[in-house]
């Protein structure tokens, strides 16, 4: 459970170690109830202040890091059509192809969907709280793939900026594509949207919002489910 593979694992371990120390101090105080002398006050300051602050700091950072991962997005069942497809090595969807790229990897949802601004991480996480609210109030009792819920949509239109971070529009091979060449300036200005052509059903084909039924196409579905 606690194999240390990343900074996140180290942070989780240090948070848990600090929590164990704090809990030991506090339980000892509750059990023994020593006089509130100077030594007790100092020890309690560690148990009530220093150690919980360390737990909070390390826990927050590791928690935030975890919220960037595709596993976290998939922990709400309505995201299964998206996450299962993105994780499917046989899928040809754009989400899956990008997820197989090491630059996206296990954080592919966040990499494409996080706001690309100076406070992008904050606004994205604030929207995450909205997701949680809607999940509890509207989607909690939907089917295993979110069947029966309202189609999921983005809060604002997907911006070209998310695509041109990597697809710079400068590469000769990209510019040689006839459709790209015909509207290259419009794409750069954002007047033509990447998703006008690379539409939702090509990105997340299993999503209800894009005409999918949540599950994998029949042959792959038989192998998976």
């Amino acid at each position: 459970m606690f194999e240390l593979h990343s900074t996140e694992d180290v942070l989780r371990l240090s948070a848990l170690s600090s929590a164990v120390i704090a809990i030991a101090i506090l339980v000892y105080y509750l059990a023994v109830r020593p006089p509130l002398g100077r030594a007790t006050k100092v020890v309690l300051l560690f148990g009530l202040g220093v150690m919980p602050l360390a737990v909070s700091l390390a826990g927050n950072i590791s928690g935030f890091e975890y919220t960037l991962r595709r596993d976290f997005c998939g922990s709400c069942h309505v995201m299964r059509p998206y996450v299962e497809d993105a994780s499917d090595p046989a899928s040809k969807s754009l989400a899956s192809i990008h997820s197989r790229n090491a630059a996206f990897g296990p954080e592919s949802c966040y990499t494409c969907h996080a706001d690309y601004q100076i406070f992008g991480a904050m606004t994205t996480k604030a929207n995450g709280l909205k997701h949680l609210y809607y999940y509890i109030t509207e989607y909690a009792n939907t089917g295993p793939y979110g069947e029966g819920g309202k189609p999921i949509h983005m809060y604002k239109e997907f911006q070209n900026g998310m695509c041109v971070r990597c697809h710079s529009t400068e590469a000769p091979r990209w510019a040689a594509v006839e459709d790209h060449a015909g509207m290259i300036e419009d794409i750069r200005k954002g007047d033509a949207k990447c998703i006008d052509c690379h539409t939702g059903e090509k990105i997340h084909p299993r999503a209800f919002a894009h005409g999918g039924n949540g599950k994998a196409p029949a042959p792959a579905g038989e192998q998976k489910e």
Binding site: R12, A15, L16, A19, A22, I23, L26, V27, Y29, L30, L44, G47, L48, P52, V55, S56, G59, N60, S62, G63, Y66, T67, F72, S75, C76, G128, L129, H131, L132, Y135, I136
Partner: peptide, 28 residues
């Protein structure tokens, strides 16, 4: 203060061990 800290530690440890969306938000 001691009891409240134990409660907050319980929430924070639970969010580290079982990092679900609701628990993370409650702990944070």
């Amino acid at each position: 203060s001691t009891i409240a800290t134990l409660g907050s530690l319980f929430l924070m440890v639970a969010s580290i061990l079982f990092p679900g969306p609701l628990l993370l938000v409650v702990a944070m």
